[in-house]
Amino acid sequence: MDILSVVGVVLGLVAIIGGSLAKGAGLSSLWSAAAFIIVMLGTVAAILVQTPMPTFKRALVIFRWLFQPPKIPGRELLNRIVGWSARARKDGLLGLESDIERLNDPFLRKGLQMLVDGNEPDTLRKVLEIDMHSQEQADIAAAKVFEGMGIYAPTLGIIGAVLGLMAVMQNLADPSKLGTGIAAAFTATIYGIASANLFFLPLANKLKAVIRARSRSQELIIEGLIAIAEGENPRNIEARLQGYVT
């Protein structure tokens, strides 16, 4: 569980609700079904028009990374690769074959399988880098779905406010409805700006950070497996890969 994300979401809600109460507007001023429909449904509609189906499905999958990001065991991964290099120098590459089925990471499993199969270092690099960049691009595109929602939501909030003011203008003859009507109109603006700046845009940036961290760990895997294929000394491999571990 990512505690910072949980705390951030809670503080964001506290900021909006607490600010409304502190200003004397009350909780009721924060709710408007019409504003919610215009902003949230409109934002989803806009992003659906923009996004290909595979990218949208991937966005739904990686959404959970906000609270449960994938584990990036940098030090553990480095130690494992150094251990493999020592065993490969002693027993040969085939001595690593028993480890393949025990690996949960598909990228690491594929790389180790290619290493055991005797692929040349250049082939290892080309194949694994293509896999890494393809996955990274797909996930970045998925993260940009939420970035796009953060761009559209404020605009939809303005549209909601304008529609609300249009409704107010139709009731100018009844002054008793003007105050509540104007307040309801600006609720849409709050939905749009708050959802963008307190949720959608931070979510997109958080996902991008997780994706970059995972790509960095995959770079460690690539460099480590290539070093093993080249028969490099385990101590040299450890020193070579230290820069990938934070």
Rank of each mutant, 00 (worst) to 15 (best):
Gly8Cys: 12
Glu238His: 08
Ala45Trp: 07
Leu4Asp: 14
Gly26Leu: 05
Arg87Asp: 13
Asn233Arg: 09
Lys208Val: 04
Ile130Trp: 10
Thr246Asn: 11
Val39Asn: 01
Ile62Pro: 00
Leu128Ile: 13
Gly83Asp: 11
Ala185Tyr: 02
Phe146Glu: 02
Lys110Thr: 13
Arg64Lys: 15
Gly26Lys: 08
Gly111His: 03
Glu230Leu: 15
Ile38Asp: 00
Ser134Gly: 11
Gly26Ser: 09
Ile182Val: 07
Leu103Pro: 02
His133Ile: 15
Ala15His: 12
Asp2Phe: 03
Leu201Gly: 02
Trp84Met: 06
Gly24Glu: 05
Met53Phe: 13
Arg240Thr: 07
Lys126Glu: 14
Tyr244Thr: 09
Ala88Gly: 05
Gly164Cys: 04
Ile16Glu: 03
Ile16His: 04
Gly8Tyr: 09
Gly111Ile: 04
Ala22Met: 14
Ile158Tyr: 04
Ile37Ser: 13
Val245Ile: 11
Gln135Ala: 14
Ser32Lys: 00
Gly157Pro: 02
Leu48Ser: 10
Met169Tyr: 02
Tyr191Cys: 02
Phe199Gly: 00
Ala188Arg: 00
Val39Phe: 03
Trp65Met: 02
Lys126Thr: 14
Val116Trp: 04
Tyr152Ile: 10
Ile17Tyr: 12
Leu77Thr: 12
Leu220Cys: 11
Thr123His: 11
Leu225Ile: 15
Gln218Glu: 15
Asn205Trp: 02
Met149Thr: 00
Ile140Glu: 08
Asp122Pro: 07
Gln50Arg: 15
Ala153Met: 04
Pro69Tyr: 02
Ala213Leu: 10
Ser29Phe: 03
Val145Lys: 00
Lys177Met: 10
Trp65Val: 01
Val245Cys: 04
Val44Asn: 05
Gly95Trp: 07
Phe107Asn: 01
Leu27Ala: 09
Pro175Ser: 09
Ile140Asp: 04
Lys23Phe: 12
Lys206Gly: 01
Ile47Glu: 07
Tyr191Arg: 01
Gln218Val: 07
Ile226Ser: 07
Leu178Met: 12
Pro154Phe: 02
Pro73Val: 05
Leu96Gln: 01
